[in-house]
């Protein structure tokens, strides 16, 4: 199973790292849409359907919390799970993000397993290998 992922971060380097970590964690990405801020993300969402959005908070023009609010207010986008990746990890900030519709929270600096775990929790399907293993177990049971 593969996913369309949107990564929103004003740092191209951080977007590249997140994409690399997702890939080496075993998740298959069919399309990766990148945006440098919330406004660009909303523009690109008009042309691209994504399964999950991974966004920074501290960005110019439109920050990650404003993006969450825009997504949450739009019936077309409000069901796309959004994960916040940020250095700003106070409990108040996390509450604010969750109230605006975030489904997961990753604190920078992170290790690959941090992203893997949150992605697993949010999209409900593990890396490709685990998913197939579960399916095989289920199939064995049926027969």
């Amino acid at each position: 199973m593969s996913f369309n992922v949107m990564i929103v971060d004003d740092s191209a380097a951080m977007r590249a790292v997140i994409k690399k970590v997702i890939t080496i964690s075993g998740f298959k990405i069919s399309t990766c849409v990148e945006a440098a801020n919330g406004r660009e993300a909303l523009e690109k969402l008009k042309q691209n359907w994504v399964d999950v959005i991974i966004s920074d908070v501290n960005m110019p023009e439109m920050n990650g919390l404003e993006l969450l609010q825009s997504l949450n207010q739009d019936p077309l986008y409000q069901n796309i799970p959004a994960i916040i990746v940020t250095t700003e990890g106070s409990s108040e900030r996390m509450k604010e993000a969750l109230n605006r519709g975030a489904k997961g929270f990753i604190k920078k600096p992170f290790q690959p397993e941090d992203i893997r775990k949150v992605l697993y929790d949010v999209i409900g399907v593990g890396v490709d290998g685990e998913y197939q293993e579960d399916q095989r177990d289920a199939d064995d049971g049926d027969f």
Binding site: S11, A13, M14, N58, T86, T87, E88, G89, S90, S91, E92, R93, E96, K107, K108, P109
Partner: peptide
């Protein structure tokens, strides 16, 4: 990105309950 992470990480340790 490095100074962004250092700052955010430090502030989380300084006061994890309040927003900076």
């Amino acid at each position: 990105e490095s100074i962004n992470m250092i700052c955010g990480n430090f502030l989380r340790k300084l006061d994890p309950d309040r927003v900076f």
